[in-house]
Simulated assay, not measured.
Amino acid sequence: MEHDSLLTRARLLPVSVVSDADKSLPTLDHGIRRLAGGGTIAGRAVTVRSDGDLLPVMEGLEIAQPGDVLVVDASANPGVAVAGGLFATEARRRGLSAIVVDGLVRDLETLRPLGFTVYARGTCPRSGPAVAVPRTQLPIRCGGVDITPGALVLGDDDGVLVATADQLAAVLDAAEAIDRREEAVLARLAEGTSLFDSMNFHAHRENVRTGTPSKLGFTV
């Protein structure tokens, strides 16, 4: 299946249901959280290794294509910001999906109204220098996850998940089915129906107690 088709389908889903469809798919450390933007983002990773230096991030931004996610490992120097309002505004102009930083960013007053997704561990007003030889499009480790150039990156308010194209293709049908079931359960809850009436909780609990193979699930 074409990458673009996979990403289009993924953008319609909460990242949590993709994770539920295959809990082995890696997710970035929960300390990397969304500071700006909304909805589900999905794109190919353009990778950057930045030891707190801006030049590698700028090269990554320059080579990134529409829809890509700029993923930056800045964990080696966590005391400075390696992206901010200018970089995010340029990323948005170029049509990128998001910037993900294992490190710090700045300029929240610019980022928040921009409508562009930025993930980071936090903020700092001090930026790094721009003197390092750029290292881009190489394997990096971001938020405890090994990421290679072109890996598929999905994110929403819950966090960031990484998958290969084959992994995402293998779980999308199941993820879409989970999403439909959860929407049906939410609709029933809104009508006043108990959550437990939409699940096999009681039977599953008894099976767990007796050692009978079982799986918790929806009944709608």
Score class of each variant (00 low, 15 high):
Gly159Met: 08
Pro113Ala: 10
Arg181Val: 04
Arg112Ile: 15
Gln167Met: 05
Ala165Asn: 04
Phe87Tyr: 02
Thr117Cys: 14
Gly122Asn: 09
Asp73Cys: 06
Val133Tyr: 09
Val105Gly: 03
Gly115Thr: 12
Pro113Glu: 03
Asp173Ala: 15
Thr148Ser: 13
Phe196Leu: 15
Cys142Ile: 12
Ile178Asp: 02
Cys142Arg: 00
Val185Gly: 04
Gly122Tyr: 12
Ile99Pro: 06
Ser97Arg: 12
Arg188Phe: 10
Asp107Leu: 05
Ala10Thr: 00
Pro129Arg: 10
Thr219Arg: 06
Leu54Arg: 15
Met1Val: 14
Asp22Glu: 14
Arg181Pro: 00
Asp22Tyr: 06
Gly143Phe: 10
Phe87Ala: 13
Thr40Tyr: 02
Cys124Pro: 05
Val72Phe: 03
Arg141Asp: 08
Gly150Val: 04
Val162Cys: 12
Val153Arg: 03
Glu191Tyr: 07
Phe218Ala: 11
Pro149Ile: 00
Asp156Trp: 11
Thr212Arg: 14
Ala10Ser: 05
Gly52Met: 01
Ala130Phe: 11
Leu96His: 00
Ala132Trp: 00
Leu152Gln: 07
Val208Asp: 01
Thr164Ile: 04
Gly192His: 08
Thr47His: 00
Gly159Ala: 08
Thr193Phe: 14
Leu13Val: 12
Arg121Leu: 14
Ala169His: 07
Val100Cys: 03
Gly115Val: 07
Arg209Thr: 11
Glu62Ala: 15
Glu191Asp: 14
Thr40Met: 05
Asp20Phe: 07
Pro213Ile: 11
Leu104Gly: 03
Thr212Pro: 01
Val105Glu: 05
Val208His: 00
Pro78Glu: 12
Val208Glu: 02
Leu104His: 02
Thr136Val: 15
Val17Leu: 09
Asp197Met: 14
Leu96Pro: 01
Asp68Trp: 06
Gly159Leu: 09
Glu182Gly: 04
Phe218Cys: 02
Leu12Glu: 13
Ala74Gln: 04
Val57Arg: 13
Arg188Asn: 08
Asp29His: 15
Pro125Phe: 08
Ala203Gln: 10
Ser194Arg: 15
Leu154Met: 15
Ala175Gly: 06
Pro26Gln: 04
Val131His: 05
Ile99Val: 13
Ser194Ile: 00
Val145His: 11
Pro66Tyr: 06
Ala163Phe: 03
Gly155Cys: 04
Leu195Thr: 03
Tyr119Lys: 02
Leu161Ser: 08
Arg34Cys: 11
Leu168Asn: 07
Gly84Gln: 08
Glu62Asn: 13
Leu168Val: 13
Ala81Tyr: 02
Ser16Ala: 14
Arg141Trp: 01
Asp73Phe: 05
